[in-house]
Measured scan of single mutants.
Amino acid sequence: ILQTYRAIANYEKTSGSEMALSTGDVVEVVEKSESGWWFCQMKAKRGWIPASFLEPLDSPDETEDP
């Protein structure tokens, strides 16, 4: 089962193997590399994304803190 994550910042791809993101995009993580790059898919797009640009979809938003 794939894990679902949300983009927390815009990411512009710098090579053909990467995938561009916009803040709020929801992606499915296909593979996690120890290098800190994750292979993700979103609709018909697939590519590598730095893991630091993603957060788990089920994590609470910062605005929901008590």
Rank of each mutant, 00 (worst) to 15 (best):
V29N: 01
P60K: 13
E55G: 07
W38C: 06
Y11S: 03
E12V: 05
S17K: 09
N10F: 04
K43A: 13
R46K: 15
G24C: 00
L2E: 15
F39V: 03
V27C: 04
S15V: 07
K43T: 08
W37P: 03
E64K: 14
E31R: 11
G24F: 02
D25Y: 01
M19Y: 02
D65F: 10
I8E: 02
E28Y: 06
T23Y: 11
E55Y: 04
K32P: 03
V29F: 02
C40K: 00
K45T: 13
L21T: 03
W48K: 02
K45R: 13
M42A: 14
D65E: 14
P60L: 12
S33T: 12
W38M: 10
W37I: 07
K43W: 04
Y11Q: 05
W38T: 00
D58N: 14
T4M: 15
L54Y: 00
P56M: 06
E31L: 07
T23P: 07
D61P: 14
G24Y: 02
I8R: 13
E62G: 13
S22T: 06
Y5N: 00
C40N: 01
E34M: 08
A51I: 03
G36T: 03
T4H: 12
I49T: 07
E28A: 05
W37L: 13
F39C: 06
T14K: 12
A7T: 03
I49S: 03
G36Q: 04
L54T: 00
F39K: 08
V26F: 06
A44M: 11
D58R: 10
R46C: 10
S15M: 10
E34T: 10
G16P: 15
C40S: 02
D58K: 14
K45S: 11
P60D: 13
E28P: 01
T23D: 07
V27M: 02
P66D: 07
V27L: 04
M42F: 10
S17Q: 06
Y5K: 00
K13F: 06
P60E: 10
G16S: 15
Y11D: 01
P56R: 09
W37D: 03
K13Q: 09
K32D: 01
Q41P: 00
S52W: 09
A20Y: 05
G24V: 00
I49R: 00
E12G: 09
F53K: 10
E28M: 03
S17N: 14
G36H: 04
Y11R: 11
I49C: 15
W37F: 12
Q3A: 12
V30Y: 05
D65H: 12
L57I: 15
S59M: 14
A51Q: 08
A44L: 09
P66R: 06
M19D: 01
A20D: 12
G16V: 14
F53G: 04
K32V: 04
F53N: 10
R6V: 09
E31Q: 12
Q41Y: 04
V27P: 02
E31W: 07
S33G: 14
F39N: 05
T4K: 15
S15Y: 08
C40M: 02
L57F: 13
G16T: 15
I49Y: 02
S33E: 07
G36F: 01
S59K: 14
L57R: 06
V29C: 06
Q3R: 13
R6P: 00
E62V: 12
M42C: 14
R46E: 11
V26W: 03
K43L: 05
L54P: 00
M19P: 02
R6N: 01
S35K: 07
N10M: 05
S35A: 08
E18P: 03
E31Y: 08
L54R: 01
A7C: 09
W48I: 03
E31P: 02
L54S: 00
Y11H: 07
I8P: 01
G47H: 02
I1S: 08
L2R: 15
Y5T: 02
V27A: 02
E64D: 14
S17D: 14
T4E: 10
Y11K: 04
S17P: 06
T4L: 12
P66T: 10
I1Y: 10
V26D: 02
F39Q: 04
L21H: 00
Q3S: 15
L57P: 03
M42W: 09
V30H: 08
S59N: 13
Y11M: 07
E64W: 09
M42L: 11
A7N: 01
N10K: 08
D25N: 05
P56V: 07
S33Q: 08
V29H: 01
Y11E: 00
S35F: 06
F39W: 09
G36V: 02
K43M: 10
W37Y: 12
G16L: 13
G24R: 01
S59Y: 11
E31I: 08
D65I: 13
Y5H: 05
S59C: 13
